[in-house]
Design a protein around this nucleic acid. Structure first.
Lengths: 147, 147
DNA sequence: CAGCATCCTCGGCGATACTG
DNA sequence: CAGTATCGCCGAGGATGCTG
């Protein structure tokens, strides 16, 4: 039952608090960080959310818009469908179909999804704003190791 | 040179603006979203940043603290070193050594790193706050597909 | 046009053993 | 104790072809 064996005394409390906060939701295994990673920790979802925050999209157009923002690299339609499904499942995206064949599908953010998109934008904008500092640090580091 | 062929007229402008904003830093290939993903889009970095925001850590203790917060699953020391190096390279983490053998290494966030950790906390906290809504939506979705 | 099934590639990550 | 080297696994993700 020993809590955090070699964790410094002073850090035990905040760590325990975090651990409890993370265990509160879900059944033990589902730490929020994990959920965030499962949500945004992949190659496309963040970008997808940002594009979706512009407005509702049809599948094909969405694919092209994403390509424009990812150095012209296209997301495979398999992945697009997969990621959209995941977002739909968690209540971030609403999928509406009109017409049977050919199907006419539209994707739009729900209010919840707009909240998540806002968070994503926040992080991206922050990184964007710090880009110079980051690249400067990187240059220093790379120069130092190669001497 | 046709910009975004089948992208809806009304969306062309915001997409172009985003594209330009993303191309501003780095040399074309480095879209901020990409950088964010390369930074936070892996299994450990976000969690690492949050733990580091508590204070400076020694390597071994940090490993144990991370384990506490990830459902007791340990990060391999190889990955810990790798991720810390990446964060150090970009100026988010400062690594200080005292003593040769055995080495005594301490890791701490730089001011820049604290900014990034704050962003990470923001997203995690938001997801945490919306956990109920997310799980509810997920339950509805799962129930609907299995009928 | 949107989606699913299939097959395959590739790199993130873990396990282990070894150095200073 | 911190770091590196080597090996091997596994799953995210790409390509293609077929259906409604």
């Amino acid at each position: 039952m020993s809590a955090g064996e070699d964790i410094p005394e002073a850090y035990a409390a905040p760590i325990a608090a975090l651990a409890e906060e993370m265990a509160r939701h879900g059944r033990a295994r589902a730490a929020p960080v994990r959920e965030v990673m499962a949500l945004l920790g992949d190659r496309w979802t963040t970008l997808l959310l940002i594009v979706l925050s512009i407005g509702p999209w049809r599948h094909a157009a969405l694919r092209r818009a994403v390509a424009r923002l990812s150095a012209e690299q296209k997301i495979s339609q398999r992945m697009l469908t997969l990621k959209l499904r995941a977002l739909e499942r968690d209540g971030f995206v609403l999928r509406s179909i009109s017409g049977d064949v050919p199907p006419r599908v539209a994707y739009a953010l729900t209010p919840l999804g707009e909240g998540l998109a806002g968070q994503a934008r926040g992080v991206v904008d922050w990184v964007n704003a710090q880009a110079e500092a980051i690249h400067a640090a990187r240059a220093v580091f790379d120069a130092a190791e190669g001497d």
